[in-house]
């Protein structure tokens, strides 16, 4: 339990400081160009890594199971409609994966 609370406190404090960075600390000063381009890529990079671990991550190994067709269906949905609602995409992935698990 203490591990969880450590994460909550540290992430909470870091986020408060990040959000206050402009309005409280930096003011209107823009970030240096290179810092800006690196920071801008952090979110897509981390999200891509999370997609992979959540799709094929196993216990210290890659595991190709029913999650893969579910996530593929979600990706196909987003390819057709990039602005598809989050809950709809999640439901498609869940249903496809659950069906594959029932059949397999």
């Amino acid at each position: 339990m203490t591990d969880v609370w450590t994460v909550i406190v540290v992430v909470g404090v870091a986020t408060v400081l990040f959000k206050a960075a402009g309005p409280v600390f930096l003011g209107r000063r823009a970030l240096p160009g290179k810092v800006q381009s690196v920071v801008e890529l952090l979110a897509p990079v981390m999200l891509a890594a999370l997609v992979v671990t959540q799709t094929v991550g196993g216990d210290g190994e890659l595991s190709l199971d029913a999650r893969v067709p579910g996530v593929a269906a979600a990706a196909a949905t987003l390819a057709v409609r990039r602005r598809a609602p989050l809950i709809g995409v999640m439901a498609i992935a869940a249903v496809v994966t659950a069906l594959v698990r029932v059949v397999a």
Partner: peptide, 12 residues
């Protein structure tokens, strides 16, 4: 299939 749903969440 909630595990796949959370992968889809990050993808979205």
């Amino acid at each position: 299939g909630l595990d796949a749903a959370f992968a889809a969440l990050f993808l979205t």
